[in-house]
Design a protein around this nucleic acid. Structure first.
Lengths: 69, 69
DNA sequence: ACGAGATGTAAAAGATATTTTACATCATGT
DNA sequence: ACATGATGTAAAATATCTTTTACATCTCGT
């Protein structure tokens, strides 16, 4: 069962000038596959990774990830 | 090196009527030792665990954890 | 049709988080 | 002094996240 955490990464990427998964991955020091897995909801990232992703987009963490527990 | 994430768990626990580590642990489905380790900054929790902790205190995630990266 | 870039996915290895068990100190109340 | 509850801490095992490597499809421009 996938973790009950939704994310807006795909939307935020495209709103950020069609940023690719590779560009996002490089910006936060992750691999493209990890970004893809998180974006697809396969698993949720570490708290630190989540903070880095939010910072890249210049938004708060809870604008990227929503907990639907 | 400890992760660059500060937390306000100790303060929030005591503001929540002297809630003990054990009570917090039970409320979020974790062990007391894990709560103690996170509170002490030994490592940062998973995103899901962070959301659950914030919910117990009724605050936003970024009021519990601050990323000082 | 071809090549390049973007994405989907998967298996194995590595890193990190979490649990379990166990023992320690400290403060408080009786 | 003693018992109890709260906390600190540690080692080993397990679970989860992340990387690495690899190959697939799809779209777009030439």
């Amino acid at each position: 069962m996938p973790p009950p955490i939704a994310n807006q990464i795909r939307r935020l990427r495209f709103e950020a000038g069609e940023m690719t998964q590779s560009e996002l991955a490089e910006a936060i020091g992750m691999t493209r596959q990890t970004v893809a897995a998180i974006e697809a909801g396969k698993y949720s990232p570490s708290l630190e990774a989540a903070f880095r992703i939010a910072q890249v987009f210049g938004v708060r963490l809870d604008e990227v990830f929503q907990w639907t527990g």
